[in-house]
Amino acid sequence: MGRRTGDETRALLLRVGMQMLLERGVSAGVQHIRLQEVLRRAGLTTGAAYRLWADQNDYQRDLAVAMVRLRLSSPADYARVAVDKLIADGARGDDIIRAAAEAHVRTSAIDVTDPTDAVDAQQFLIALALRTTADTWPELKEASRQRHHESIAAFAEFYAYLMEAYGLRMKTPLMVTDFTEAMAAMGEGFAVRAMEGLEHPVYHAAEDDDVPTGEWTLFALGVRALVNEFMTPIDATARMPFADAPVTPETPIAPAP
Rank of each mutant, 00 (worst) to 15 (best):
R3K: 12
R3G: 12
G6K: 05
E8W: 10
T9N: 10
L12S: 01
L13N: 02
L21M: 10
E23P: 02
R24I: 04
A42N: 02
A42P: 07
L44Q: 01
G47Q: 13
G47M: 15
A49E: 00
Y50P: 01
L52S: 00
D55P: 03
Q56N: 10
Q60A: 00
R61T: 06
A64P: 08
A64K: 02
A66C: 09
L70A: 04
R71M: 14
P75K: 06
A76Q: 09
Y78M: 08
A79W: 08
A79F: 08
A82Q: 05
L86H: 03
L86M: 03
I87A: 03
G90Y: 03
G90W: 06
A91P: 11
G93S: 02
D95S: 06
I97N: 07
V105D: 05
R106F: 10
D111K: 03
D111Y: 02
D111G: 06
D120H: 06
A121L: 07
Q123A: 12
L128N: 06
A129D: 10
T133S: 14
D135Q: 09
D135E: 13
W137R: 08
E139Q: 05
L140H: 04
R145H: 13
R147N: 07
E150T: 02
S151E: 15
A153D: 13
F155A: 01
Y159S: 00
E164D: 14
R169Y: 07
M170E: 04
T172V: 13
V176M: 12
F179L: 14
T180M: 01
A184L: 13
F190T: 09
F190G: 04
P201I: 03
A206C: 09
D208L: 11
D209L: 05
P212K: 06
V227W: 14
M231Y: 04
T232N: 01
I234T: 10
D235N: 07
A236Y: 10
V247N: 12
T251D: 15
